[in-house]
Structure formats: structure tokens, C-alpha cells
Design a protein around this nucleic acid. Structure first.
Lengths: 262, 262
DNA sequence: GCGTGTATAAAACACTTGTTTGAATCGTTC
DNA sequence: GAACGATTCAAACAAGTGTTTTATACACGC
């Protein structure tokens, strides 16, 4: 009878998305809202904002088609609510990250890669949060700006600090950023290009064990790369490399300076 | 008057997509077909198959909305024709690739990365071919199966051979495939996660010079990673590394064996 | 000139999408 | 029990999509 244009919308997006228990009415109404939120998260994460339909979301939530409009206003605001909800789920990862700060830089890189790959491969319940973030990178919505600043950049800073500690102060910032890209790119390949990977290697399994396995490889591969960048920018040989392979190093620097292939 | 259900469709997809000049009628009709093909390529590459609309394609080609149906049957078959046309454009890359076979493996990896990055960053005229391929990796259509076998796998074999030559015969195939993923992931990051990268580093330019620069970094980074993998699987120290840093290597192997972080 | 096959044009069709409507249901309060 | 507000429901709406239809213009062989 009374179409609440902005009332349940504003209340829902701000409060109920963060606090799970309004408890102002009976048990059923809050359940629909939460079912809607959860179903939307799954559908948005697997199909993206554009391809996801409110009909599928409502069907999975066993709710009426009009419920999304009643509780959230429209599809875009439902997405915002899901996004806020996802962001609140990543707080536990922050503490896990902060616990690593006391470790040496090499172990922090290993820890980061292992954590990130586990997140990307995790298909358990609240894990569509990271799938949603990964999708936002490919199919950006207006929420991406906010996500980059609050979710991605802090984690990139974590990686940046560890990389800087490994390569030393002589490597320019731009090159450190390239190293961040190298590590993140290796991880994200198995999320963004999964259709290709599964076709190239049909026998490959994508479970948590594989995530650990891949993380180990990526860490090995990347730490060696970081050491090479470090050596490249430290003329006074701090390692065996310069003493034994001066020609190789010179060639490498040269090719990087004039920026091209052989 | 006569709706040619399958006739112009079959002729179009097979012959006219490859041969640019049928010259059976006046000059105008073939022009519309080609304009349609080119416009579709641009729109498909920038929006993806799903988000691309035949109305936008026809508008850009300055053709009627019904023309896509008349010349190609339907939207899906238009995409197939575009895809076939793209594939024919990659033949010139094949010869460029074959010219590298005589180079040493390290230079082949450098050459491959430089070539691939240049392709991904190229925005000149027929370059939407590679953008279309990159999009197919994220938003797969039924054409992906064909594309993996005819376009991607041959190039992965090229990389695989070079990597195998670098790391030696002791490294298992699975690990070589992981190395392929590491290199490709670093390259594709700047295509698939571009919205995030531009927000993280707003000052970054994405021109051909940057492509060469990034390719140089990726090659440096990856070749060091490959050498590390090689050393990891060759117990008899073929380099300075094992002699001077046995502890580091033991730790690295250990962590990779039990497959985890620190 | 005329019929024929080809190509284009405008309109309409069938379908899916997000969204809205108006009534029906439920629980609480007086 | 009546009244009220909150919630759910089935149906319809408006806009966009790919596709089809119908009619028209054009070129060519007879």
C-alpha cells in the first residue's frame, strides 16, 4: 500500500548491511533481507553486475521479485549493500596481515602470496567477497574507485614495503611498482584467465591444495625475480652474482636501459 | 522479398571473411559487408560479445539494423565471422615468431614478451584482434575452444620450448606450465586489470614505449625466476648459488615441498 | 520494358531486463 | 476484534535487446 521510496533503502544500506541483527520485528523479515544479500553476493560474484539478474537473485533467495526493490531501492543499491557487506568481511584479513609485519620481508612476500591465492581459490561460504573484488577489476562499476582505495591499495602497500626491503633503496619506485604488478599478475591469472587455463590444462585441479602449490611456485619465481632486480641496481656486488657473471649482468642492465629485446 | 536464411551466411563466413574482394556485384554491397565486419570487430573488442549491440554495430557501419541478419544470419554468426577474420590477421605474427627459433632460449623469451606486450598495447587499426582475444579469455564464448587450440596453444608451445631449454630436463612438466603462467600472468595483468592499475597509478602512461619498458621488466623478472627454478631442480650445483647459499636453497626446496608459506 | 535476384530501409515482433503497481498477508497495538 | 504499519505477492509496465517481416530501390539478362 505505502511504497517506501527512500525509507527502507537508506536504513538498509547503511545500518543493516553492517549490523546483522536489527531484531525490531519478527524473525522472518530480517531473514529475507539477509537471504537477498547473500544470494545477490553469489550471483554478482559469479556473473558480474551487468549479467546478474534480479530474477535469479530473488529465485535463489526464495523471495519475490519486488523484494529487492522494496528492501534496497534498486539493483544498483543492492550491489552497493553487498559491496559494503563484503568490505566488512575483509577486516579479519587485516589482522592476519598485521600479524605478518614482524616477519622478515621474504616471508612476508611468501605469506602474502599464499594468503591471496587461498582467498582467490576459496569457494566456501563468504568467499564470494574476493570473487566479487576480482570481478570488479575486469568489469568495473562505480564501486571500483572506493574499492581501490579501501581494499586494494592498503594491501599493495603491504607488498610494496616488503619488496622495498628486499630490493633495497636504489631501485626506483616505478620499478618497485612493476614488481608488485609481476606478483599480482601471476596470482590473478588463475582467476581472470581461468577459462583459458582450464582448456590448456584440462587435468589441472583448482582446489585449496593447488592454491598452496601455485602460491609456492609464484613465491619462488618472484623472490628470484626480486633478487635479480636488487642486484641490477646495486653496482657494488653484494652477492656472488657480480663476481662470477659480470657479462650477464652488464647485458641485462644494457637491455633494460635501452628498453627492448635483444 | 526472399529471405536468404542460410545462403549469404555460409558464403559470408567462409569465403568473404578471408578474401576481401568478391567483386561479383557492384562496389557498394561488398563495402557494407566489410564495414559491418570492421565495425563489429571494434565494438566486440571494446564491449564484449554480450554487451555489444547490433544497433551500435550497424550505426557505426552506417548500415541498417537488418543488414547484420541479412549478411551473417544472426549476431553469433557475425561474431564468428569477425573471429575468423581476426585469426587470419595473426598469420603475420606466426612468421615473426618463427624467425626467432634460431635465437638462444633467453632471447626467445625476451622476444616473446616484447612481442606480446606490444600487441596488447597496440591500439592501431586492426589491433582489436588481440583485444578481442584478450576479452575472450575473460568473457568466454563458444569460440574460445577453437581459439585456445589454434591461437593460444601454439604460442604457449613456443614459450614452453624456450622455458624447457632454460630450466633443463629435470624440472617436471607441471612446473614448466607454472612458469608459462607466471610469464603470461605478468603480461595480461595490464590488459585484464587495467582499470585497477590506472587507479592505483594515475600517472602511468600506456603507450608503446611503456609496453617496451614493461616487457623489459617482465623479461628480467621472469628470467631470474626461471634460473631459480632450474637451480632448484639440479642438485649438482651448476652455478654459484648452491656453493654460496646452501641454506637458502634448502629452505626454498623445503617450503616448496611441503607447499606453503614460511 | 520486364521480370528476377540482390541489397537496403523502416517498422514491427518476441523476448528479457529492471522496475512499479495495487492488493493480500502477517504481526503488533490499542 | 479493529486498526495500523510492515512485508510479501502476482501482475503489469516501460525500456532495451535480437530478430523478422514487409516493402522498396537497384542492377542485370531477356
Amino acid at each position: 500500500m505505502t511504497p517506501p521510496a527512500t525509507n527502507p533503502l537508506a536504513r538498509g544500506v547503511t545500518s543493516a548491511a553492517m549490523a546483522p541483527e536489527p531484531t525490531n520485528a519478527a524473525a522472518t523479515p530480517v531473514a529475507t533481507r539477509e537471504r537477498l544479500l547473500e544470494a545477490a553476493g553469489e550471483v554478482f560474484a559469479s556473473r558480474g553486475f551487468h549479467d546478474a539478474t534480479v530474477r535469479e537473485i530473488c529465485a535463489r533467495a526464495e523471495a519475490n521479485i519486488a523484494s529487492v526493490n522494496y528492501h534496497f531501492g534498486d539493483k544498483a543499491q543492492l550491489y552497493s549493500a553487498v559491496f559494503q557487506f563484503c568490505k566488512s568481511l575483509t577486516k579479519s584479513d587485516d589482522v592476519q596481515m598485521s600479524q605478518m609485519t614482524s616477519l622478515p620481508a621474504v616471508d612476508r612476500v611468501r605469506g602474502f602470496v599464499a594468503w591471496y591465492m587461498t582467498m582467490l581459490f576459496d569457494t566456501s561460504r563468504p568467499a564470494w567477497a574476493w570473487q566479487l573484488f576480482a570481478r570488479e577489476m575486469v568489469d568495473p562499476t562505480p564501486a571500483l574507485d572506493h574499492m581501490v582505495e579501501t581494499v586494494i591499495r592498503p594491501r599493495m602497500h603491504f607488498l610494496q614495503d616488503a619488496i622495498r626491503e628486499i630490493v633495497g633503496p636504489n631501485v626506483p619506485d616505478e620499478r618497485v611498482n612493476n614488481c608488485i604488478g609481476s606478483i599480482m599478475g601471476q596470482c590473478l591469472l588463475y582467476k581472470h584467465s581461468l577459462p583459458v587455463v582450464t582448456r590448456l590444462y584440462p587435468d589441472m585441479k583448482f582446489d585449496s591444495a593447488q592454491a598452496v602449490h601455485l602460491a609456492s611456485h609464484i613465491a619462488d619465481f618472484s623472490l628470484a625475480g626480486l633478487e635479480a632486480i636488487r642486484d641490477q641496481f646495486n653496482s657494488k656486488p653484494r652477492s656472488w652474482r657480480e663476481r662470477l657473471c659480470p657479462k650477464e649482468r652488464a647485458k641485462r642492465i644494457d637491455s633494460s636501459r635501452k628498453g627492448g629485446k635483444s
